[in-house]
């Protein structure tokens, strides 16, 4: 089984961290993993994305061009990547920042207003963890506890006081996924 995951959004939304937590969790499950950031003449507030491959076999190209799971955290990312999702794959849309309908009807669409949900938890910056909680729920290879453990491993120690709110956000994401 191979998951080729693409996570896209604005710089600063935490899309790189989401990918690193997934890759770390895959590594903890003894799976082959890779993480690859988009890199270019990027700037703060510009678009950023990363590709994560989680596989039972060694990873070929770490560059994800046809994701099985795709997360779009903003409208430019939805416009750019909607067409790339593999048929019957999953598209996770941050509806707080995407006021546009998904046109594809051959993929599973999961819509979550993560900014509002994060505000409700009391910290707008955990929007990415809500989305990660939803995304991880559709990856059977990655137990939810592995995601939580990887959050601790990947997050720099100076931010560890934020782990409880991030865990709460992961769980909220899982709930929202299960409700859909």
């Amino acid at each position: 089984m191979v998951n080729e995951i693409l996570i896209a959004g604005f710089g600063g939304q935490g899309v790189m961290l989401m990918g690193q937590i997934l890759a770390h969790a895959g590594m903890e499950q003894d799976l082959h993993v890779s993480w690859m950031p988009s890199y270019g003449p990027e700037q703060r507030g510009g678009t950023a994305n990363c590709g994560v491959v989680i596989s039972e076999d060694p990873v070929g190209s770490p560059v994800v061009t046809e994701p099985t799971e795709c997360v779009v955290m903003n409208l430019p990312s939805l416009e750019k990547f909607e067409s790339s999702v593999r048929p019957s794959g999953h598209l996770f849309v941050n509806s707080s920042l995407c006021d546009q309908e998904v046109k594809r009807d051959d993929i599973q669409v999961v819509t979550i207003p993560v900014t509002e949900e994060a505000d409700r938890l009391g910290n707008a910056r955990v929007a990415n963890m809500i989305m990660l909680g939803a995304l991880a729920s559709c990856l059977p290879n990655l137990p939810f506890d592995a995601i939580k453990a990887s959050l601790r491993a990947v997050l720099p120690e100076r931010h560890h006081q934020l782990i409880p709110i991030n865990e709460k956000a992961l769980e909220r994401g899982r709930e929202l996924y299960q409700q859909q």
Partner: peptide, 10 residues
Amino acid sequence: DGIMGQMMEP
């Protein structure tokens, strides 16, 4: 190459 420099792997 650029990929090898930028990517993460265990």
